[in-house]
Structure formats: C-alpha cells, structure tokens
Design a protein around this nucleic acid. Sequence first.
DNA 1: GCCGTTTTCGGCCCGACTGTTTTCAGTCG
Length: 569
Amino acid sequence: MLKKDVIRLLEEIAVYMELNLENTFKVSAYRKAAQSLENDERSLEEIGDVGKLKGIGKGTTSVIEEFVNTGQSQVLEDLKETVPTGLVRMLKIPSLGPKKIAKIHDVLGIKTIEALKEACLNQEISQLPGFGKKSEANILTNIDTVLSRPDRYPIDKILKFIDLVEKSIKAFGVKRYDIAGSSRRVKETSRDLDFILETDDISGFTEFMIGQAYVTNVVSQGEKKLSLEIEDDFDKINVDFRFVQGEEYISTLQHFTGSKDHNVKMRQLAKERGEKISEYGVTTESGIKTFKSEEEFYQYFGLDYIPPAMRETGQEVDIDIKDIVKLSDIKGDLHMHTTYSDGAATIREMVESAREKGYEYIVITDHSKSLFVANGLSEARLLQQIKEIKEIDKEYDDIDVYAGIEMDILADGSLDYDEEILKQLDYVIAAIHSSFSQSENQIMTRLKNAMDNPYVRHIAHPTGRLIGVRDGYDVDMEALFDYAKETGTILEINANPRRLDLSSEVIKNREVMFTVNTDAHHPDHFDFMKYGLATLQKGFINKSQVLNTLSRQAFKEFINKGKLSDIHE
DNA sequence: GCCGTTTTCGGCCCGACTGTTTTCAGTCG
C-alpha cells in the first residue's frame, strides 16, 4: 500500500461527499487529511501512526487503517451506492457545482454528462427552480468546453498564451500589470491565466480586450474583473483580468498569485494575530495596511520573502527558507549549444549573452557525434571547437569559458567518445537521446555506465520527459539518486520549460548535488533559468546543493580537481 | 471531520460575479 493510494482515496471520498451535499467543512477535512499526508515527506510505513499528523483525527484514521488493512473503504463504498460516478465528471463543467448537480440528479434522475446535454436540448433544465434559460445555455456550451478542451496546458503552451495577451496589454497601455496565478508560480501545467493590472480606463480596456481577434467568448465582466476565453492555434483557455488601484496592488498580486492553500495558511497566520488578509490589504486594529512590495508583505508577518514558486502547500510558511537557492545565486550556465551542432548562435555570441546576464562562467556543450540529427561533433570537429573555445576564453577577463560536451549515452550503454577525447575536455555531460522505449533495466544500465565514467560530471535531463508531450524513459529514481551519490555525479535540472527535468516532485530531500542549466540553443534561452530555479525552489533545494552557485574561483577549482572532488570545501 | 494560550463547542479565508429572484444562493479562485 502506497501513500499516494491513500491520498487518492481521501480525495475521492471528499469528491463523493461533496456531491452527497455533506457538510463542506467535513469535505475539506478529508482534503486537508490528504494534503497532510502529501506534505509529509515520509512513506506510510515511516509515518506509522497517521493519527499523529495535523489534520488527521479519529475519523480519517479509521478510514485510512481500514483501507491499508483490507484495500477497501466502507465509507467510499457507501457513498458510491448513493452517488452515481457520472456526477463526478459533471463537476468539471464550469458553472456547475455540487448543489446544482445534486438538484439535477435528484429531480430529473440525470446521471451522466450525455444525459445532461440531452436534458438541456429538451429544455428540461430551465424548468428547474433556481435555473433559467441562461443557465441552461451556459451548461450546454460548458459541456462542449469540457469535452473538447484539455483540463490543463503544459507551461510551454501557457507561455505562448501569455505572450499573446501581453502584446495586447502593452498595446493598450496600462499603468502596470503582472501575471499571477499558477503560471507565476511556475506550475508545470495551468488551467487558466490570471493577470492583475492597474489602469484608469477599465471600461476602455475591457472593450479593447473583447475586440481582440483571439477572444472567442466573454465569460464575465464587471468593475473589478474581466474573464475571457481566448484561442491560440486551435487551443482555448480562460483568462482572468483583475483590476486594481494604487496602494492595493501588492496585496492583490499576492492574493491572486496563490496558491489557495498558501493563502489559507497566510490568513490563518494573520488571524492568530487578530488581523485579516484580503486582496485589498491587511486589516489591522489601526485600519487597512497596504504594502510597497511582496517582500514587505511577508516581512510584516515575520517571514522571509517566499518566492512565488514556493507558494504551494502552506508548508513553505512553516519552514526556514532562507538558504533556499535564488536566481541571483546562479553564477553560470553549464549546458548550451552553438552553431557547431544545433544551436542558433556562435560561441562568441553565447559568451556575449552570458556576460550580459552577469555570469562568471559558462560551459559550451554541443552534441556528440552520434546525434546526427543535431549535427553532432566528430572527434576532429570537437578538437577544433576546443581550440576555438580556449582562444575565446583568453579574450575575456570577466568570464571563464570552458570546453564541454553533451555526450550521448548510446543504446548499448557505451559512450560516444573514448578517454583520449574526454580527457581534453573541461567538463563532460552525459545524456540519453535515443532508444527511449527500453526497459527500466536497460535504461538504468546506460545511466550507470555513464555515471561510472570518471569524466562524466553530470547527467542532463535525466528522464527525457517533455511536459504534456511524452513521459520520458523508464528511470528507477531511487537507483538514480543512490548511484549519483555513490559516484559523485551531479544531476541536472533542465530549465527549458518544455522539460523541467528533473521535476520538483522527485528532487525533494535528496542528498545529491544538482545543477540547473538552460540547455540554451539560442541566446534568448538563457532566460529559461528562472523556470529551473522555480523547480529547485519547489523542491526546497538549498543553495549549497546547487553546483552552479559556486563562485568563479570555486568552480575553476572544481573543474581542475576532477569529478569526485568535494565541492563543499 | 478537525481543532484548541478565547479548549470540548463553535468555528473552519474571503470576496466578485452571475443568474435568478426581489434579497441571495451558488460557483469560482
């Protein structure tokens, strides 16, 4: 029995209870219990007595124990007796919540989305008390939305939507604006977009936005907010704009950045002090307090600044976060490509761009010879590149430019260059780019072979996943981390928003060194670093656990000492 | 269902918008 099975059980019970119209606080008690398990890093076995966890009392303990012992839950079985499974799917339909669904079910006996659609077409829904023509029409279009649109979009797609909307905001001209919500928190996927913005002309802005060609529907509009459905490349998503004036800006930004759980936690904290947090500020005895920055907001509650990426479960409010790595800690990028292989810029252009970023060192790591599709480097071309890098490095006294490679780990586990070549490089990355469908055993053999090699410093994008596109190859995570630790091999957080690999989920509480790199194929890609940083922050990784936070001098020593040197010194 | 330096009952974050009804419930974030 795994912890995640128990978490799923509790969440499932919560959903069924919700549809059974049980007390909403009872429902959220089950959700909180699930969250509590989720937030605990230990396995079920290590936790032992779940009743000791905050948020898990007598009731949920007995539910959990029954489930662990028998694999079943009477509570859930009983709920399923009274609540048809089809109603759970209906919850996904916007504008329909548990109360309305229960009414539709109780009065009309409707159990599925399909039957609901039929009832709308037959105008049965509008006959129900509390429903009308508009509700019926909305349900009908919202059903189509649910059936035709993915639940969430991967961050890469989200960034394209954001780009689209930002162009309009800038074209209209507003005093200031920010992206908020889950995309500001750099979640791997998002359901919708949230902007907050300040303008003197709300009605003008509203009119302007509704007129944009990519707007397909106006969900709601008011004095304080505007909600639109937009379309890009046949994909649709909802965008919420929240209007804010002057001093309230920071509180509104903080509020709409979320997460919900983070806000609940902060509000509890405020409540304990006799204060109240809302999107308008903090209500104190002496009136409403507003803030000049989010730093000031968190400081007011005696907390270090919590970066948006970390604002997820509420746990981040309780722990000491001052050593967690920050973007400003990053002193170099160790994985990038140039025109030698499949990059868009020359070595020099990449160096210039890195200098603008303020980096103290970079490693040029083009693809190795077997990756033909990416114009991988033959031994001769690599030697020529090393020579060129060394020459360019000499020209700059404010940055160190190292010669590296992103070397393929071939399907049979062998590496793409032999020792004669590898020893001439400053830094070697190994990565899998082929035969993704191999068994976990074969994949692990390949990864271990690479980690055994004394020249291989780090493993790039260790799972090969592309968020929302492909899962990557089968990696035994425990074995990967164990072997990385044993061999002194560093694991990469690939900051490309299509990858974010390793993910924040798997890096928590690991005793290995990480490095966060953009894998830039263009100078603009250096900007991806913030997404990798967000991943590290979500994983609660400290600065001392990230290789490229080393100073220029310390990194040089690391390069000279070789793979197994202790970089903590 | 859970929790407790306002503890064993009474709260549990808080506000905007829609649609329906006519003062507010339901949904959403």
